[in-house]
Design a protein around this nucleic acid. Structure first.
Lengths: 211, 211
DNA sequence: CATTAAATATGACCACAGTCATACATGACC
DNA sequence: GGTCATGTATGACTGTGGTCATATTTAATG
């Protein structure tokens, strides 16, 4: 996946709009390249604006902060991932498998570029809590999808109808993100998707013993 | 709970050691007060050293970064919490209740000072991933405690002996931290300890339906 | 084309975390 | 007490993210 995504190649726009789009794309292009080359922390805004041929103040006309720029990249990637998930949802398989497939798919997306994911997750965490609450958190997006799957599972009968749907979706979401972070910063390497897969089994069957 | 904790009131120390302890305590005293008064972000190091009557460089002889200072406060509080938990562990009650009690206790500790917890968790997250890996993550501490409880539960027979202990402990830890973050930054207020309690029930019984 | 208002661009500037060469204080040894 | 090695203190300095008053560009109006 490339981090650079050119957008809005509008035809019917004023000179102003055209220049704005051009500048915006130039920032994406340069920042995307530099982030990939040297990482987020080691890329300075001064560098970005120098290579993009714009003034420093201009950068902040387009993005409120350096972090916001990275989060924009992250959101684009996330949008792509979630849109791909939608397809999977229509297949007729047991709920557990559906949930597993969904999470394994997202996990594999992350596994494809561990460093990039680390960068995104790290900056996402930094940003977390500062946000004015208006931008949807990706944990909520995942939780909502899971909610839908579990709800469907209750109707089909392969999910216990006694449970609170929101709690269940929340639990799985929590397991997912915690596992992701453990995997990202683990000393030894292992398969994140396998790990998450095993955990879904566990949470479906429960921990309780027979005794 | 006060954020200031004076320590090492050694008797048999050299003048050097005495001065060091004095300076260290002065930093704790001033920083603790300022963090409480105006929050972590809005307290500058210049302010701390000015009020503490030391040079700026001196601060960095004692703490490698501003964040390290806050994490030190956090660790102290965490140590206290975990040491209190140890007592609970010896009581003879079902494993599920033991786990529930443990998490509810930690949750209640957090509930007592939401703003302080938010500050700690937020800076902890910022720091996460940067850490050279040598400082034990509090998620690992919790996970280890849960591991012990689950292991004991298997022996007693009230935990399914088929499960992987580490996975189970990990799952509960993940649920805990995700729930904590959701609670900390939720728009509406609710009981975090009740929330976590209900989730433990769910994860013990499993999500699966009868069908 | 001239005038004007609004959008956009800009870089000097600021605040703040963190560094480092230098100065100073302490205590060990004579 | 005098000398010296080593531990500690210091603040001028640096790097970087972000701001803001001002300049420039665009386009609407007559």
């Amino acid at each position: 996946m490339t981090m650079v995504m050119i957008e809005k190649d509008d035809i019917n726009t004023s000179l102003r709009e055209k220049k704005k789009t051009e500048t915006r794309n130039k920032i994406f292009e340069v920042a995307g390249r530099l982030f990939k080359e040297k990482g987020f922390e080691d890329t300075t805004i001064d560098e970005i604006v120098r290579e993009a041929g714009i003034g420093k103040g201009t950068f902040f006309n387009y993005f409120p902060s350096k972090t916001a720029l990275l989060l924009y990249f992250a959101k684009k990637k996330e949008d792509l991932t979630f849109s791909q998930i939608k397809h999977e949802m229509t297949r007729s398989i047991p709920t557990k498998e559906k949930i597993k497939n969904t999470l394994v798919f997202v996990a594999k997306t992350n596994e494809k570029d561990k460093e990039l994911t680390k960068m995104f997750v790290f900056e996402y965490m930094r940003h977390y809590g500062m946000s004015s609450g208006q931008d949807e958190r990706s944990s909520h997006r995942l939780s909502n999808i899971l909610y839908g799957l579990i709800e469907e599972g209750v109707k089909k009968g392969d999910v216990n109808s006694e449970i609170e749907l929101k709690k269940a979706a929340d639990i799985i979401t929590g397991i997912y993100f915690h596992s992701l972070m453990e995997w990202l910063w683990a000393k030894n390497d292992y398969s994140f998707s396998d790990d998450i897969s095993g955990k879904i089994d566990l949470v479906f069957d429960g921990i309780r013993g027979e005794g």
